[in-house]
Amino acid sequence: METLVGLLPIILMFVIFYFLLIRPQQKKQKKVQQMQSELQKGDEVITIGGIHGTIHALDEGTIIVTVNDGSTLKLDRSSIREKKND
């Protein structure tokens, strides 16, 4: 019983660590993956590098993004940070 009481602070710290750091990060990652899987042609997006553009074409793992000056970039789907709201 004394061993359990001695381990209780460590267990409590792990539980707090889980609910304050690990779980919110997992939720955020799941939300980003869902957004990336729901991308469609014509969506305006921002990449991880800060490039703003419009999706021109989609493939299973890649996306072709057209930027304002007419240039096209071929990017991994995972490089999309967020989808702009219209």
Results as ranks from 00 to 15, higher is better:
80 I>T: 00
74 K>I: 05
71 S>F: 06
13 M>G: 09
39 L>S: 02
22 I>V: 12
26 Q>H: 10
4 L>Q: 13
16 I>N: 04
60 E>V: 09
6 G>K: 15
82 E>P: 05
26 Q>C: 11
7 L>N: 14
49 G>T: 11
70 G>H: 00
7 L>G: 07
8 L>K: 12
7 L>D: 12
76 D>P: 06
75 L>H: 03
11 I>V: 15
66 T>W: 01
40 Q>N: 13
52 H>G: 07
29 Q>K: 14
38 E>I: 04
31 K>Y: 07
67 V>D: 02
65 V>A: 01
28 K>H: 06
71 S>E: 11
63 I>N: 00
78 S>T: 15
38 E>N: 06
13 M>S: 09
57 A>G: 06
13 M>L: 15
60 E>L: 05
72 T>W: 06
5 V>D: 15
31 K>N: 09
29 Q>E: 13
84 K>I: 14
33 Q>H: 08
20 L>I: 12
39 L>E: 03
4 L>T: 08
54 T>I: 08
66 T>D: 02
8 L>F: 14
22 I>R: 09
22 I>S: 10
85 N>E: 15
58 L>T: 01
2 E>T: 13
85 N>L: 14
49 G>K: 08
79 S>L: 08
48 I>D: 12
50 G>C: 10
4 L>K: 15
55 I>T: 01
17 F>E: 12
9 P>T: 04
4 L>S: 11
23 R>E: 07
42 G>C: 03
84 K>D: 05
53 G>R: 00
55 I>M: 02
2 E>I: 13
79 S>Y: 04
36 Q>T: 01
72 T>E: 04
57 A>N: 05
70 G>L: 01
31 K>T: 09
56 H>K: 11
17 F>M: 14
43 D>N: 06
52 H>C: 10
59 D>P: 02
62 T>N: 03
41 K>C: 12
7 L>P: 05
81 R>D: 07
36 Q>K: 01
75 L>S: 01
27 K>A: 03
45 V>N: 00
73 L>D: 01
81 R>I: 05
48 I>L: 15
85 N>Y: 12
61 G>Y: 11
48 I>V: 14
50 G>N: 05
17 F>G: 07
59 D>V: 03
36 Q>F: 03
58 L>K: 00
77 R>Y: 06
86 D>C: 15
6 G>I: 15
55 I>V: 07
54 T>C: 02
25 Q>P: 01
25 Q>V: 09
75 L>I: 03
17 F>D: 12
45 V>W: 00
60 E>K: 04
57 A>L: 10
24 P>N: 04
71 S>Q: 14
81 R>N: 08
44 E>T: 07
86 D>R: 14
86 D>H: 15
17 F>S: 11
74 K>N: 09
52 H>D: 10
3 T>P: 04
57 A>V: 06
80 I>N: 00
2 E>R: 11
68 N>F: 13
1 M>P: 07
29 Q>P: 03
74 K>W: 11
8 L>G: 11
54 T>F: 02
36 Q>I: 02
86 D>F: 09
6 G>C: 13
70 G>I: 00
53 G>Y: 00
26 Q>D: 08
41 K>Q: 15
51 I>Q: 03
13 M>D: 10
1 M>Y: 12
76 D>Q: 14
33 Q>Y: 10
14 F>E: 10
45 V>F: 00
57 A>K: 06
23 R>H: 07
20 L>S: 09
75 L>E: 01
17 F>A: 10
80 I>V: 09
44 E>H: 12
74 K>H: 11
